[in-house]
Amino acid sequence: MIKLNPKLSQKLSYTLLFMATMLAIIPVLVIIFFIVKNGASSISWEFLTSMPRNGMRAGGILPAIVGTFSIVVCAIIITLPIGVCAAIYLNEYAKDNLLTRIIKLAIVNLAGVPSVVYGLFGLGIFVMFLKLGVSIIAGALTLSIMELPVIITTAKGALNSVPQSFREASLSLGVTRWQTIRYVVLPNALPGILTGAILSIARISGETAPILFTVAVFYVPNLPNSIFDQVMTLPYHLYIVSTQIPNMPKNVIYGTTLVLMMMVLTMSFVAIFGRAYFRKHRKW
């Protein structure tokens, strides 16, 4: 075997590792570049704030933006409290027994279920069985079921990273277990919980399969009035304009993509900067 000189092999491995990193991010950058290049021209105030016209080929995408926004907000209002409560139970109270282990295993595995399965489940349970119909609430509930394991997992991680020594310090002052959670553990875990939540929002904003059968429709002439209305959504609208309508102007497709992407990226950045800010300025 040829023995490389150590200096050379050091250089070589560095180059290889660096190339692997590049390989990972270049496609993403190329995609973003293309979308921005082709989509930027169609973004205008009108595009963001008016209804589609001319069989979606002109006008704006306001109903899709409003639709996605309302589903996601409903979903997070449902998941966050439930997820945090479950995480507190699992991290702070649950004894390590068979039941707990089954629950934990289930949570890990639920996060891996394909999203179309959740979509069909939502159709069966919320739309048909509970007779919610194709509606914001049915879609939000479906997304909630899908996102709950993720929220529980990130919240549990955030709770778990609060040092045990803080808990012991609080308990040793005669503070009860619940008060310790309330005044010591939760404030310390909050930044982590919130970033997890924002990343979840970002993720579900782009989901298509779960909302396909439960809330999204091809076209509605009005904005929604209540959570029992059907709505258009960005990911589904994107699917429609790119595949279902002949003679679709390309800039509408790229514009819609850009809006969806900006929405998701903005939320991710908010999460990242929020976390950094909390770390620096934490009162806790």
Binding site: S165, A169, V184
Partner: peptide, 9 residues
């Protein structure tokens, strides 16, 4: 405790 553990407040 062994390591000082003031709360970060």
């Amino acid at each position: 405790f062994q390591r000082p553990n003031p709360f970060p407040i």
